[in-house]
């Protein structure tokens, strides 16, 4: 029930595995269907970013508690090039690839807590939490 789950991302099939695992933990934690969909979508964006921009990474999925509330925490880490300007990276529509530039900014809107830690040569870690209501 508690205990941590981990998926190593090296291919787009692993991104699908992350979505499936996040879905099952979100159900276990008691998130509503809409909130399950939001956290799975955010997980998909963050895992894909690690794959595309860093060549791979690692996703940890944790059940967290705050008083009587339970939540799902995701920690997505990679050892890639990092992001030089965090403000810019969190702007809707900003992309260095050929995406829509919505992965980071959109994920931030889909979750309750969002933390982005990155810098040139330091890799990237994104931590997000969604609480059951």
């Amino acid at each position: 029930m508690t205990g941590e789950r981990e998926v190593v991302i090296t291919s787009s099939a692993d991104v699908v595995a992350v979505r499936q695992l996040v879905r099952s933990v979100a159900i276990e934690v008691g998130l509503s269907l809409v909130d399950q969909t939001k956290i799975v979508t955010a997980a998909s964006e963050l895992a894909r970013n690690a794959l595309v921009y860093a060549g791979g990474g690692d996703v940890r999925i944790l059940v967290v508690e705050n008083g009587h509330r339970r939540g799902l925490k995701l920690i997505v880490t990679d050892d890639g090039p990092g992001i030089p300007d965090l403000e810019l990276a969190l702007t809707d529509g900003w992309t260095t690839g050929n995406g829509l530039g919505l992965g980071l900014s959109g994920s931030r809107r889909l979750v309750d807590e969002f933390d982005l830690l990155s810098g040139p040569g330091k890799g990237t870690t994104v931590t997000v939490t969604k609480w059951a209501r």
Partner: peptide, 14 residues
């Protein structure tokens, strides 16, 4: 499209 998907898409910004 499922309702939960539609809600999520709009919030994502798409």
């Amino acid at each position: 499209m499922r309702p939960a998907v539609a809600i999520t898409l709009v919030e994502l910004g798409l």
